[in-house]
Amino acid sequence: QEPLTASMVAAALPHEQKQMIGERLYPLVYEIHSQLANKITGMLLEIDSSELLLMLESPESLHAKVEEALAVLQAHQAME
């Protein structure tokens, strides 16, 4: 699978852009946390596309964001 580039994303329709990025992001998130991969990917997709593209290229920053999303989710669940 060829890497997703900013120009590929820019060429897509606005509602397709996040889906395109999500398709790449989901398997990576799934490797880190399979049970919450759908939820965590959905949370990460609210981040700017340009930042998401950088995260796809950087396992360290992706990992940090997944951990951050998990912490936010756990804090949210604890409040309910």
Binding site: E23, Y26, P27, K39, M43, L45, E68, A69, V72, A75
Partner: peptide
């Protein structure tokens, strides 16, 4: 620092990814 991530975000449903068994 407070996270900007939203715990109420909609779940993402992949079209193409098949989950490994």
């Amino acid at each position: 620092r407070k996270s900007t991530l939203n715990p109420n975000a909609k779940e993402f449903n992949p079209r193409s990814f098949s989950q490994p068994k």
